[in-house]
Design a binder for these strands. Sequence first.
DNA 1: TGAATGATGCGCT
DNA 2: GCGCATCATTCAT
Length: 199
Amino acid sequence: MNSTHTIRGKRLTRSFYERPTLEVAEEIIGKYIVFDKNGHRKSAKITEVEAYIGQDDPACHAARGMTKRNAIMFGRGGFAYVYLIYGMYHCLNFVTESKGFPAAILLRSAEPIEGFDFCQGSDKKMLSGPGKFCRVFQINLTHNSLDLTNGHLYLQDRGAETTIVKTPRIGISSGKGHLWRICDAQSQFLSQPLKSRRS
DNA sequence: TGAATGATGCGCT
DNA sequence: GCGCATCATTCAT
C-alpha cells in the first residue's frame, strides 16, 4: 500500500534556521524531514525536539568552547550536526542562529510518512528516539555538516498545524531546569509519553 | 510499570 | 580513564 507519489512541500531556507533557537524549535514541530538516498526517499513528520543553546547551557556540546567535533555549531544556521553517542548511536541536530553563536536542535522523535514498510505494525516506535531515528534513516558521521538548504537532507513545510508542550530535556545531568524539550502535544509518536493531566 | 544494566567508541580532563 | 543529548534487555515490585 505504499505510495511512490512524492509529497510536495516547501523546503525551509536559511532564514528559518538563523533565528533564536527556541523560536525555531517551536516551529519545527510538525515540519517534515526528507532524506533522498540513491533515488529512495524517506520522510517523517517531526514530533519531538530539544534545544541546546549557547555556551551558557551546560548541557550544550559547545559549553566548553569550540572543538573539532562541535565546530559546525559555531557556524551559520541550516547545517546538520551529527555526532556519535555511547559508541553505537548517532544523533542528528539542526544548527540554528547566526555564525558565532553555537546552538542546535536535536531531533528526538518523528512519525514515519514515506519510504517505510509498515507490515510490522510497530510504526509508532520506529523513529521514537534520536538513536533509533538515525539508525532507520541511516544517518551517520558522513552527514555531519551537510547543508540542509542545498542537498538531499532537508526540512519541508507541508502546512501541518500543531499544539506544542514543553518539558525538561531527557538524558542530561545538568541544565535540567530549562523546559527545552518540545513536543507535539497530540502526537502518539514521541520518545516518551507525556504525563497525563489529572482532574 | 519501573529500575538497573550492559554494549560500545570517541572526546576531553 | 571517565563520562556521555541511547537503547534493548533483564530483573524487581
